[in-house]
Design a protein around this nucleic acid. Structure first.
Lengths: 230, 230
DNA sequence: CAACGATGGTAAGGTGCGTTACCATGCTTA
DNA sequence: TAAGCATGGTAACGCACCTTACCATCGTTG
């Protein structure tokens, strides 16, 4: 009410300066991007039903009209935003797993590195909030949830699995099922600590390092050789 | 509106038959129990904001008055119900882990048994719904969430950890940190499959069995001995 | 037997929210 | 320069829902 008029005039002036060729689109796209960004943050923090369109608009500027023109409603906005988040959140994870420099490292170091990256990525507040939101709203958006699972955890398993398969065949040590082995490795890292954070607990960097160390050891040597192999 | 009058008359009659000594209390407790049961089911299915008090009452019988007399509002009802669920859902898990007959079994068989029980328990639809609800609403009920984590996953880790410690000391094979080992074992079982179900996927019993087998093997022998030890 | 008190059901108050219709503003074109 | 059109903001509609005040009903007691 108070600051919107001047804000709008600024936008209109910038449009004027850009010339008459494309009158509305640039402003609209920018606005849509802003709305999406604000919506992402609020949905992550408060969940689907905890966010009102009014609160989004209050922060993004613009009005209901812009939101409905760009996204067509709350449900659609939510789907769009969440699907985008899937790729964003998982990008560093994929990058780490597909990193070709891993090939040069000894297996133990490679696994330690991967484990550390995966765990710190997964435990970041944004990633935890994203996980919470995905789990909460999966029934509302089943196709997005499937997309997340196949492009997230399953993709990570596949990448690490093929890495293991290559590595193991090189060293002459066969491996029955690299995919399952990879899944167990990643799960052994993640589950407990992620759940701890999800339920409000804290995880220190030292805890992360310790966990990675143990998982790698267990993975390589088995439990019963912990002290023997030392 | 249509069937409530007769329903109420039945209740009143049953109270009459029970004598004049305790007039209201039995009916009220029963009603509270029914409300809690219905609320549990609906909250599990639709989440906190997805359930209206009206929908609870419509199924449980009684009225807003009963709900407010017994629980004092929606938030309180939710907390009460969820805290009860914590112990109910986790009971079979604890039972399996504290089962003394495990002591007699060979380690591999004991782990396989525990793994199978844990996994089938965790993957049951009610348990998955409970997990979803707990993760979703943890920020709303931080103390309940902490209660869940400490009495659920952490307790399971402790039980399995002490089992491992005893077992390992008996066989002369030392183990650096039985608690972390137990956590990794349980996490390796759970995470991926639980997340798959949470995002709408299906997990077959064969998948469960396979996973347990691999985790136990990995746990006992490490990855690199999969084929050597076979 | 009558009045009082408590227990339980109903309905209305008040709020928040998603959606859409309406209106103003400014650019483009004849 | 004036008219038309599209774009954007406002406000109202309708709905859902938590909460509480009010009322009826029934058992108890003087």
């Amino acid at each position: 009410m108070k600051f919107k008029p001047q804000h709008m005039q600024q936008v209109q002036q910038s449009l004027k300066q850009l010339g008459p060729a494309r009158r509305p689109n640039i402003g609209a796209d920018e606005r849509a991007a802003t709305i999406a960004a604000v919506a992402s943050r609020l949905f992550l923090q408060y969940g689907y039903k905890g966010v009102s369109l009014e609160s989004i608009i209050a922060e993004s500027g613009g009005s209901y009209r812009d939101l409905y023109s760009a996204f067509g409603g709350k449900e659609r906005l939510f789907e769009t935003v969440l699907k985008r988040m899937c790729t964003e959140v998982l990008a560093p994870l994929k990058k780490a797993l597909a990193n070709p420099s891993l090939e040069a490292l000894p297996l133990e170091e490679a696994l330690t590195h991967v484990g550390h990256v995966v765990l710190t990525t997964i435990l970041k507040p944004e990633a935890v909030a994203f996980h919470r939101l995905m789990v909460s709203e999966a029934p509302r958006i089943p196709e997005v949830a499937k997309f997340f699972f196949s492009h997230g955890p399953e993709s990570a398993n596949a990448l690490l699995g093929s890495f293991l398969a290559k590595r193991v065949s090189k060293t002459g040590c066969a491996l029955e099922d690299p995919h399952i082995a990879a899944a167990i490795f990643l799960d052994g890292l993640i589950n407990n600590l992620q759940l701890k954070v999800l339920t409000g607990g804290r995880v220190s960097p030292a805890e992360v390092t310790l966990r990675v160390k143990h998982v790698v050891r267990l993975f390589l040597h088995g439990m019963l050789r912990f002290t023997e192999g030392k």
